[in-house]
């Protein structure tokens, strides 16, 4: 997934004499410029406090009967083994939410890849109006979900504009309270909202495709579609791997849209996401152990999906 950039040249070149001279005492232990560690210390501390420790703590909570208590109170939080996990796995609401997020990803990820690659390719070929088009594509991405949700509620309500235009084709009950359409509606919303970001990623990748490849394809008499399929698609494959990975991770984090767009994962849990259930179980109902177990399962599943995607989308590359 990561594109390897040139490592700092200082790494292979000889250090300048001045630099080596000053810190020679420490160079054995901390490297040539020990102040690098000092400069990075705030960031490292931040990562330790906000990412590393909570990750471990999440796993710990998921194996204990954890409950909220006043700060400083000495309470017993017994180890319960896999109890939280068995609870979670036998809970129909939780199982439903994992199914929902699966439906979401099956719609969202392929749609995101196809639309953003096509739009980025077209955008890369035009000159006039390029800035206007690029900006209008990413405006939804930079706007708060909460703000856009309002207008989607308005557009997709029972007698909203979308149904007015569709007339007899409109689903009944309307989109967001229809148990079949609720999850796909959320998937379309998120695809639309995030697309601009992925278009930017693909644009960056497209600008690095060597021109000779296109010239060679033209010499061979390949048409536009053929060129797109045989030159562009393979050339941007590393970007595709990245887009698939990021959209999967962002999708698995889904919370705001089911919370607001379908009024808390409705109808009847048809659009509840695992993170929404985590919020309900962990914070509203005060069982963080259960919520942490859902989180651990979700992350393990995401890692598994990401690994599979990388095998299939990534082709032979590492």
């Amino acid at each position: 997934m990561t594109v390897v950039h040139a490592e700092p040249r200082a790494g292979d070149a000889d250090p300048s004499p001045a630099r080596r001279g000053r810190s020679s005492r420490w160079s054995g232990i901390l490297g040539r410029n020990p102040s690098g560690l000092l400069f990075s210390a705030p960031y490292l501390a931040f990562v330790a406090v906000v990412f590393a420790f909570p990750l471990g703590f999440a796993v710990w909570i998921s194996f204990h009967d954890y409950f909220f208590a006043a700060p400083g109170a000495d309470v017993d939080r017994p180890f319960v083994g896999l109890d939280n996990y068995t609870n979670v796995l036998s809970d129909p609401d939780v199982r439903r939410s994992f199914l929902n997020i699966g439906i979401f990803l099956i719609i969202n990820v392929p749609l995101t890849v196809v639309l953003s690659l096509v739009l980025a390719t077209l955008l890369n070929q035009v000159v006039r109006g390029r800035v206007f088009l690029r900006v209008s594509f990413y405006v939804p991405y930079v706007t708060a979900s909460v703000a856009i949700v309002s207008v989607w509620l308005f557009l997709f309500s029972g007698d909203g504009l979308v149904n007015e235009v569709l007339g007899p084709l409109a689903p009944d009950p309307p989109w967001l309270i229809n148990s079949f359409w609720a999850m796909p509606s959320i998937a379309f919303f998120v695809t639309w909202k995030q697309l601009g970001f992925y278009i930017l990623l693909y644009l960056a990748a497209l600008q690095n495709v060597p021109r000779e490849l296109y010239e060679a394809a033209a010499t061979d008499g390949a048409g536009r579609l053929r060129t797109f399929w045989s030159v562009t698609v393979p050339a941007v494959r590393p970007a595709t791997v990245l887009v698939v990975l990021l959209s999967t991770i962002i999708g698995a984090n889904l919370f705001t849209e089911p919370y607001l767009l379908t009024g808390g994962g409705g109808p009847n849990g048809a659009s509840a996401s695992p993170v929404l259930i985590m919020y309900q179980r962990g914070i509203e109902q005060g069982t963080p152990g259960v919520a942490a177990a859902i989180g651990v399962i979700l992350v393990v599943l995401v890692l598994l999906v990401a690994w599979l995607q990388r095998r299939f989308v990534g082709g032979g590359e590492s």
């Binding site: 999440a58 962990g282 989180g295």
Partner: peptide
């Protein structure tokens, strides 16, 4: 993913 950090960060 933020979802795994949500509960411990809230507790902390």
């Amino acid at each position: 993913p933020f979802q795994l950090l949500m509960i411990p960060l809230y507790v902390l």
